[in-house]
Write a protein that binds this DNA or RNA. Sequence first.
DNA 1: AGCACGCCGACT
DNA 2: GTCGGCGTGCTC
Length: 740
Amino acid sequence: MTKPQSASVKVCKIAIPVPLHRLFDYLPPDDVDSSQLKPGIRVSVPFGKSCKTGVLIEICRHSEIPNRRLKAIEKVLDAQPLLSQQDMRLLHWASRYYHHPLGEVMATAFPVALRKGKAAQGQHEKAYCLSEKGELVQPEQLQRAPKQQAMLALFQQSSTPLNAAALSAWQRNWRGTLKALRDKELVTETRLAVIPAPPTPAQPTLKANPQQQQAIDDICAARGEFAVFLLEGVTGSGKTEVYMQVIDQVLQQDLQILVLLPEITLTPQLEQRFRQRFAAPIVSSHSKLTDNERLNAWLQMQQGTASIMLGTRSALFTPLKNPGLIILDEEHDSSFKQQEGFRFSARDVAVVRARNLHIPIVLGTATPSLESLYNVKQKRYRLLHLPKRAGNAIEPKFQLLDIRNKKIQDGLSDLLISEIRKTLEKQEQVLLFLNRRGYAPVQMCHSCGYVSRCRRCDANMVIHYDENRLRCHHCGAEQSLPRQCPACQSGELRSIGLGTERIEKTLAELFAANKVVRLDRDTTQRKGSLENYLQRINRGDADIILGTQMLAKGHHFPNVTLAALLDVDSGLFSTDFHSAEKLAQMIVQVAGRAGRAEKQGKVILQTRQPDHPLLVTLLSKGYQAFARTALEERRLALLPPFSHQALLRVHAMNAEAPQVFLNAVKNVLTAINPGKTLVLGPVPAPMAKRAGQFRFQLLLQSEQRKELHSLLDRLIAEIEQIPESKKVRWSLDVDPVDLY
DNA sequence: AGCACGCCGACT
DNA sequence: GTCGGCGTGCTC
């Protein structure tokens, strides 16, 4: 039985996570009192053939859609909105600023469990412990089942119940073994309390040096008001200590702290330090946790039962019952910018969030982004500078190693090899950095020149000898490694270029007596394996550490005294104007890994461009000087931050459609453009074909942010009218950081 | 983005 | 004769 529809029927505007720039109208559910329909609650609605979880935005009297076509909300999921009005405002702002559909923006504020419509209730996490029987059984009694034997021993050694995360860290396929032990009633299931056990006694705070104290005082003086601090300090300058002492004071006011970090790899380390220090509930949120773990963490911050959250980019929108402070560490790191879908910058949105909440935010880094330095110049951010701590590590010595016309074996020059040997003889560790994984980026036939290209991308397949496969790093396509040239059937296939896997094999030959550890996405894919490697390295159970990006991200390797970047040149010649900044940050960050104790470190950069101004300025005058020069270049070229950009990206299966569409867009733009905004393109994307899709882009640039944004508003309305838009998929990237 | 509908090639 | 390829269109 349905209610008679009176003239005063209300219409609910729902934000649904689909890439469409509009809200969807629904009738209120017939069994629910309208007082329960508060903006911000989640609702389940029929959408097309399926059901989706959306957020109620507003209730109005009328709909543009004829009433008889309206469907009713199926279910109200929340009694109260889970997000505060301020956070809803922030999401509306982000949707407008990034010109991204509100439904998708709203969805990113919720953990996956809530996006799927789960109730906003904490889930007690499953854990396992020994049964009474299990405590008595000797593992040796399970002779015919070595895996069960090992797991039983693990339980007998552990003083606490083990959860899924702990078991995964122990072994990848633990579920089968666990089931066998539970069937034998040696292990039983328990539930872990949501709130962690009473924390360990807090460690005493260290005595801050004068500069640290100044920073702490400045930040604390801004409590309860909006202020942005750029905390610049090289590795070893004691940034974390500043964070912790400020956090301590915020905790004393019973306020919460949100700490954002670039990658999950850093979270466990910092979490451990925080747990030793604070007698306050700490939760973390990153992609290696299960949906329920992340839901629990989110709810505990929302309800105020946890005081500190450590999380990655997606933790930015975690609701805070009593917000007190936001800390964003490694602010220069480009992983704070989401690179698909809702392409937001967690750093920039975090600043806006702090402003809305009237709380301070601290951006920490050893290598500030040019945008942040510019904001300091504009007096929008306050700079706090921590010099290197006296008595701590000595500045590493840089050496530009000119490898032109030098003998070089798989990317390692003779001079570098002898430096490595010298370091190893002193029982010290070596760190080698190459930002390319796999064995070699190209496989080529020596007799006919055939190259193994990806069928779906404008890219070559990368050789992975370890798995005996060819892989495309852009679409994930793979095939087994051919033994013969597929084109001419000759056996002369060669590996061209370098990857970490190849260097690893060369190092194993050159330094057969030493242990080499390779850290890249291929070797650290498994949960907990990076932590295992890092422990190994710090135990001294590794002599040469070789790896990609992830090496440059803040890990402490106290015994490394030689760091080398095997190929800096590939970073020098990119079309993207950000690349110089990224390379400089990378060099400084890698250098930060070397020589941290009393031993002076050495940093070697292999290059065929020893006179390149970027390298010369950076090495002779330091990062600050480099940044000044780079900013001046941006100013002269009117590039960001001296102008503002938005990139319209388009892709389609059809090769012509993207360009045809963008030409039409350009025509529209010339008609509505007030004149000062530059329209550059359309041009093919740097990788014109990727995963079978043809890609084009159009860049808009303006000195006035307002002008750019009002143009984008009008453009989006017009785009939907362009007939060609139906044949392509398009998206906007506001403040793009890389043009891929 | 999903998802269904719809019209043309290689299979039982 | 059908299964299924992806071009097209729609979602309140």
